[in-house]
């Protein structure tokens, strides 16, 4: 009985310690998420009649959203952007770098640092630096390199805008992928490789039959995380293309921003936001479940 009272007091203390974290999270993340759902059912706006007297409009914003070609375009652009950079680009180049760095090469720490450097660059800096690489027609750095190699050049950001923002986002994430996959590679016990070698397996077989299957859980978690964080990329795309030319690089976060803060349609923008929230939540729940959080 005495112990029970002690326990209770202890748990109360723990809750008190958690309170300073709980309050801002509740007010500034959970409440806004719920508020977004409410806003999406009103015609709230920053300017005009609706700004003074917002009305409840039910599902009207969602009907409009699902018949809006620009919204579907942004979903498609986001899909290409995420699959191209988080799932394919960063993963493949990160994996290749991790495997190459496992061999005994001179200057491996220099290579490692070089590949990691883009991870440190703030989103706006990344966008700005790549303008130099890609914008300006034959003046762009990439065009000059192509010309020097005797290859054709184009106006990169106008001809292949989506491919280019996907490539820039790939550039930003190779380092993280490399570090995490290096950790995964070192976790495969060397005895397994020894045994395979005794059985006469060649490097390719060892890679496909041992390395990949044993790393599958790491790879899966990595992809979930990078997918979720790529959906919320805003600054890099906004600084590099602002969603253009036309809407060709308008990822969902730029779409929401444009609807809410350029067109000032808060209610309508919130409907787009709710869709983005739901997609991220589904991915997040998958992530939490597969992590088998040991709490």
């Amino acid at each position: 009985m005495v112990l029970d009272a002690f326990q209770k007091r202890r748990e109360r203390q723990m809750l008190t310690l958690l309170l300073p974290a709980l309050i801002p999270l509740a007010i500034l993340t959970i409440y806004p998420a719920l508020y977004a759902v409410y806003l999406s059912m009103t015609n709230e706006a920053l300017t005009g009649v609706a700004a003074a007297k917002p009305r409840f409009v039910g599902a009207a914003n969602y009907f409009r959203l699902f018949s809006d070609g620009r919204f579907w375009n942004s979903l498609f652009v986001t899909f290409v952007f995420v699959v191209g950079s988080a799932i394919i680009g960063q993963f493949v180049l990160g994996f290749i770098s991790a495997v190459a760095l496992r061999r005994k090469v001179y200057g491996s720490s220099v290579f490692g640092a070089a590949i990691l450097l883009p991870n440190a660059a703030p989103e706006v800096v990344a966008g700005f630096m790549w303008i130099s690489m890609l914008a300006g027609g034959d003046h762009a750095t990439l065009s000059k390199i192509m010309i020097a190699l005797g290859l054709p050049w184009v106006d990169w950001l106008n001809t292949f805008p989506l491919f280019m923002v996907t490539m820039v986002n790939t550039w930003r994430g190779i380092g993280t992928a490399m570090i995490l996959l290096t950790a995964g590679l070192s976790a495969v016990p060397s005895e397994v490789y020894e045994a395979a070698r005794m059985d006469g397996a060649n490097p390719r077989q060892m890679f496909l039959r041992i390395t990949l299957p044993l790393m599958a859980p790491t790879i899966f978690l990595y992809m979930l995380i990078s997918t979720v964080s790529t959906i919320s990329v805003f600054g890099m795309v906004y600084a590099l293309t602002r969603g253009g030319p036309g809407n060709r690089t308008e990822v969902i976060s730029v779409y929401i921003y444009n609807q809410s803060f350029t067109a000032f349609q808060l209610g309508y923008g919130a409907a787009g936001a709710v869709v983005a929230l739901l997609v991220s939540l589904v991915l997040g729940i998958t992530y939490v479940r597969s992590l088998k959080v040991n709490v």
Partner: peptide, 11 residues
């Protein structure tokens, strides 16, 4: 995992 652009307007 919630994208910050999505929370921006209510925030």
């Amino acid at each position: 995992v919630l994208p910050s652009t999505a929370l921006l307007v209510p925030l």
